[in-house]
Nucleic acid binder design. Structure first.
Length: 559
DNA sequence: GACTCCACTTAGAAGAGCAAAG
DNA sequence: CTTTGCTCTTCTAAGTGGAGTC
């Protein structure tokens, strides 16, 4: 259906933009705000002062209590110091940032308390920046850029036990930036007095600008927003590949079941890994460089300490207990009954190994993906996550929702289906800090509404009695009373549904699956079938991103 | 195959904005 | 009008997987 517009690999013909937006220069501390070392006031050089501010700004954060963070910060900070400062400042514990910290908090507070007019002025200034830098021209379409602002300097905030947390993230200069645009287009002008590192015209990639970041040495890109045509088409393709898996999955499953008994060790490991990826929606688990990031794993990089085998657990046989840290150091904990063949294989894979050894020592994501792509063009490990997420949503929606339900109930069903996927994919969030309180508040509101309902009912009854006894009273009054009861009931139900939803959602993040794993056409079709406006399940951003699906999907769409 | 580099998607946290409650 | 609580948006880290090289 989608036409191949360009020859292989070409992403655009014309790409024109104004280059990235740079964060403001560092503003030196005012004279009345001081840094102290060992109780003595010390005037820092500008180069050393800026990192001191970064640290002071984070003083309320748990990061600054962690040894690794403090050590990394201190090492990098000392690099920025003058010789004299370095000689003096030798112990972070003797550094006193309280005045800088207080200044920062006051600034935040002041920003919050700006007048309406000042806030509006700020907003307008911001909009001007967006207008100038936030859009580009790609093949005659004006497109929103996703991240047109260069990341400001600061202290690196890695997730989990990151060995590099606290390191100084350096300020990016135009001299670090590679610009990508079409040859004929007007080339973005660097900030005055500066030059770009390079200007290139590579239409086989989609980025507009890039730079190399100093913590891991990886490349960062400026790219289009998710609502752009380019990203939308890619998204559509992703779901089409996942849909294609539907036609292959039965055979693939049969095959890995057979492979569980293969004579070849590598084949058996591949079969077990695929069993996990398919059944549990685990990530592939690429190799990682040790010491460069937190110790996290995916399927292929599982180590034997990450699973425990239980021949019998509670009333179940052959249970595998998973306990490991996945992407973003989110814990994956799950007890899963598996088939006997998988269990026996795992036992064998673990034999003669010790803590730290890989479970699948003959396997890599590369070989696994090679195998997968031989089974179906375009198939890789992550396609299973997309496929299983989307098919689960579709099946759950079918199971949970009724056309006769009211809107609130329908939306609850949708959220529950969404939640089933989020659980499958292990998308978690920290429970909101105010959770307990706001839950209690909601309960109080429900109780109040219950009383109100009782009152409304009593009044209705009273009115009825009056009509009966006198017969002449205004029938409108009776109708009104009845309507009040109905309204009350509906509101109560709505609140109760809301409470259920909230409780079940405490630690689950729905957004990630909604945005990245669930074919939007399933949701759009569901909305059409259930007569629920699409705005009820997708906010503005989501509707923009999924515009392609909202446009093309009919009620009879099947994933 | 192992190693490196690169480009792109996926991820939760934090910050901003906004609406309802007080 | 101010405060509170929630949703939406922004931010950027952390994954996946392809390609090139040896």
């Amino acid at each position: 259906q989608k036409k191949e517009k360009y020859e292989d690999g070409v992403k655009w013909r014309i790409l024109e933009h104004n280059g990235p937006y740079f964060p403001p220069e560092y503003q030196p501390l005012p004279d009345n705000v001081n840094f102290y070392y060992n109780g003595e006031k010390v005037k820092l050089s500008l180069a050393a002062e800026e990192p001191a501010l970064f640290f002071a700004q984070m003083l309320d954060h748990e990061y600054t209590t962690k040894k690794v963070f403090r050590d990394n910060f201190f090492t990098d900070w000392r690099e920025e110091m003058s010789h004299k400062e370095r000689t003096l400042i030798k112990d972070l514990d003797k550094c006193d940032f309280t005045e800088i910290h207080a200044m920062h908090k006051a600034k935040v507070e002041a920003r919050k308390n700006l007048s309406k007019e000042e806030k509006l002025a700020l907003k307008e200034a911001n909009q001007k920046i967006v207008d100038e830098y936030g859009y580009c021209l790609l093949d005659r379409h004006k497109e929103r850029i996703g991240n047109f602002k260069i990341e400001p300097p600061g202290l690196f905030r890695g997730r989990g036990e990151h060995p590099k947390q606290g390191m100084l993230k350096k300020r990016i200069q135009p001299e670090d930036i590679i610009i990508n645009c079409s040859k004929e287009s007007s080339i973005p002008v660097p900030p005055s007095g500066h030059k770009w590192k390079e200007v290139r015209h590579d239409n086989t990639v989609t980025w507009l600008a890039s730079w190399t970041e100093n913590i891991q040495g990886s490349i960062k890109y400026i790219m289009l927003n998710a609502n752009s045509k380019l990203k939308g088409e890619k998204d559509w393709e992703k779901y089409e590949v996942a849909r294609k898996l539907k036609d292959f999955v039965d055979n693939i499953r049969k095959q890995y079941m057979t492979d569980l008994g293969s004579r070849e060790m590598k084949k058996r490991q591949g079969a077990v890994a695929l069993y996990f990826i398919d059944k549990l929606a685990l990530r592939a688990g690429n190799e990682k460089e040790e010491g460069e990031s937190a110790d996290t794993v995916g399927c292929c990089s599982l180590r034997i300490e990450h699973i425990t085998l239980h021949k019998q657990l509670d009333d179940k046989e052959y249970v595998v207990e998973f306990d490991f840290l996945g992407k973003d150091s989110i814990r994956y904990y799950n007890k899963v009954p598996v088939i006997k063949k998988v269990f026996k294989n795992l036992k064998l894979f673990m034999k003669n190994k010790q803590t730290g050894d890989e479970l699948f020592d003959r396997l890599s994501t590369i070989s696994l993906n090679k195998h997968l792509s031989s089974l179906m063009p375009g198939l890789t490990a992550k396609v299973f996550r997309t496929y299983n997420a989307s098919i689960t949503l579709q099946q759950q929606l079918k199971e949970l929702s009724n056309k006769s339900d009211n809107e609130a109930e329908k939306i609850l069903s949708y959220n529950r289906a969404n939640r089933a996927v989020a659980v499958l994919c292990n998308h978690q969030r920290a429970p909101p800090k105010t959770f307990e309180q706001s839950m209690a508040n909601l309960q109080a509101k429900i109780d109040a509404r219950k009383e109100q309902l009782a009152e409304a009912k009593a009044q209705f009854k009273e009115a009825k009695k009056e009509v009966k006894s006198r017969g002449d009273s205004d029938p409108n009054v009776l109708e009104k009373k009845q309507a009040a009861v109905a309204r009350c009931k509906e509101q109560l139900l709505k609140m109760e549904v809301q409470a259920t939803d909230k409780e079940e959602n405490k630690q689950i993040a729905l957004g990630t699956s909604k945005l990245n794993y669930l074919d939007p056409r399933i949701s759009v079709a569901w909305c059409k079938n259930m007569e629920v406006p699409v705005e009820k399940i997708y906010n503005k951003t989501q509707r923009d991103k999924f515009a392609w699906a909202i446009d093309m999907t009919e009620a009879d769409f099947v994933f």
